[in-house]
């Protein structure tokens, strides 16, 4: 079978959706091949563990295709799959035995009674370019992975997957205020983890 051409227009999108709804195996394969990588990247960001990520993507595609009749085409197929993949990942996180919540306190700024910080913040150097860039990005991803799950998940959904506060709160079955607090703390903790790498020693 020749490779299907990528979905590039709305017309392609609705034609593809019609084929999916008709149960065309070629359409299923096209979607898995074209969009699977993006969904696996989402799962890897949320779950970190490679096997869990692959299983979540498989769950997501199977669930999506079984429910294709319910998809009304209000959003793009990729957006719809993204939502189903995030849900599949969160279901896997909930099933895992809850690990002891790691305290974030050591990574949050601390202040004296007068409101002054225990440690003054220094500026950071510019992000590296060239060969150093890939290594730096890897260390940033490793720092994100070090955040306690409770906080990491909010940072990934809000800052990386670009869901809004209300969407994130609904997915995590919590309040918008709780999402905001957790996001702020997660960013502060990540900033602390990156501080030694990026602090500008020339200042």
């Amino acid at each position: 079978m020749p490779p299907a051409s990528p979905v590039e227009s709305l017309a392609d999108e609705s034609a593809l959706l019609a084929r999916l709804k008709a149960g065309d195996p070629g359409a299923y394969e096209q979607v898995v091949r074209e969009m699977g990588g993006r969904m696996l990247a989402v799962a890897r960001r949320i779950l970190v563990d490679e096997n869990e990520s692959q299983d979540a993507v498989q769950d997501a595609f199977v669930s999506a295709f079984r429910n294709i009749a319910k998809f009304e085409g209000n959003s793009q197929i990729a957006t719809w799959l993204h939502r189903i993949t995030v849900n599949a990942c969160l279901m896997r996180l909930r099933k895992k035995r809850r690990q002891d919540e790691v305290s974030l306190d050591a990574l949050l700024p601390s202040f004296g009674a007068d409101g002054h910080p225990a440690h003054a913040a220094s500026p950071w150097r510019q992000s590296p370019t060239g060969d150093e860039l890939a290594e730096t990005r890897e260390s940033i991803r490793a720092a994100i992975a070090k955040l306690p799950e409770h906080y990491r998940i909010v940072l990934v959904l809000r800052d990386i997957e670009a869901l809004d506060t209300a969407q994130t709160a609904a997915l995590l079955e919590t309040t918008e205020a709780a999402v905001k607090i957790r996001l702020h703390r997660a960013r502060q903790a990540l900033r602390e983890l990156l501080d030694s790498t990026f602090r500008d020693s020339s200042n």
Binding site: R141, I144, D159, I160, R187, L190
Partner: peptide
């Protein structure tokens, strides 16, 4: 601010 941007770029 840089933290948020770096996290987005890294991922």
């Amino acid at each position: 601010r840089q933290t948020v941007r770096l996290a987005q770029e890294a991922c």
